[in-house]
């Protein structure tokens, strides 16, 4: 039994216990057995895959770069990790690969879309090839994969989908228009999926991380409240387990984004955010 206070906080306020130990003691065991993690070679995806493997979940690891995943697979217990080199922009191959993976895993109850791309874009740059890469990786790949997952979960009437979106999707900021757009669209897509699938007992969880210390953010200016990928992964899995629909990681971003969202557009455009 979790203490009542935790239930209250996770559902209503999405404030999570601050230290790792605290979190671990609340959520000892994960409810999933077979998972697909997209974007498992680095960052949040990698941390999620590691945590799932450490708790005995069988995980399919997908990303373009396989080196890091192979290393992870070697240290994983009893053949629990399966590695697939895959570019999420190769949409045509996804249905066949999805079916292959479910067969290799011997089941499926969790799909995490953590693939993401955020090349640095300066304030005067309008580079379609970069923008396209972000939209394809952050959004279209997610749509292609989660469509497959949703189709299966609707029929099996179970399963969890976790989409790693971002606080960046809450407003169109000056920084990187295509990145904000891709995450805003992903957030909306996940909400639609949730509304479609709830009646079948399928959970869809939208994760909105703030700044997480990963390759993506290394060297970027203006970072604060930076948390490790490991901590982010803890909080993400805890939120998904406790039945949250949307979780900010860490939770205090909810209040920040609440304020940012209510700033009127004519004011927002003058702010150096």
């Amino acid at each position: 039994m979790r203490p009542l206070a935790t239930l209250f906080s996770t559902h209503l306020l999405a404030v999570y216990p601050e230290s790792h130990n605290e979190i671990q003691s609340f959520y000892m065991k994960l409810p999933w057995k077979h998972a697909i993690v997209l974007g498992a070679s680095s960052g949040i995806g990698k941390a999620l895959a590691e945590e799932l493997l450490a708790s005995g979940v069988k995980v399919a690891l997908l990303a373009r770069r396989t080196d890091a995943m192979e290393a992870m697979a070697k240290s994983a217990p009893s053949d629990n990790a399966k590695v697939y080199g895959h570019d999420v922009r190769k949409y045509e191959g996804i249905p066949a690969l999805f079916q292959q993976i479910t067969k290799d895993l011997g089941g499926l109850d969790l799909v995490i879309y953590a693939s993401g791309s955020m090349p640095s874009v300066d304030e005067h740059e309008y580079d379609f090839s970069k923008d396209r890469e972000m939209l394809e990786t952050n959004l279209l790949g997610g749509v292609a994969w989660l469509d497959e997952a949703a189709k299966r979960f609707e029929q099996t009437k179970m399963g969890t989908i976790i989409g790693i979106s971002s606080v960046a999707g809450e407003r169109g900021r000056r920084g990187s228009p295509a990145y904000c757009t891709s995450k805003a669209a992903l957030t909306t897509f996940l909400e639609s999926l949730r509304n479609r699938l709830r009646r079948y007992g399928v959970k869809v969880v939208t994760i909105k991380p703030g700044f997480v210390d990963t390759e993506m953010t290394t060297g970027k200016p203006g970072l604060f409240w930076l948390i490790s990928a490991k901590e982010a992964s803890h909080r993400i899995l805890s939120a998904a387990r406790s039945g949250a629909n949307t979780a900010y990681v860490p939770g205090r971003w909810r209040y920040v984004m609440f304020v940012i969202k209510i700033i009127p557009s004519f004011v927002f455009r003058h702010l150096p955010i």
Partner: peptide, 12 residues
């Protein structure tokens, strides 16, 4: 690649 099965055959 092995033959793909129809998704609508899936049942729990």
């Amino acid at each position: 690649m092995s033959r793909l099965l129809a998704n609508d055959r899936i049942e729990r």
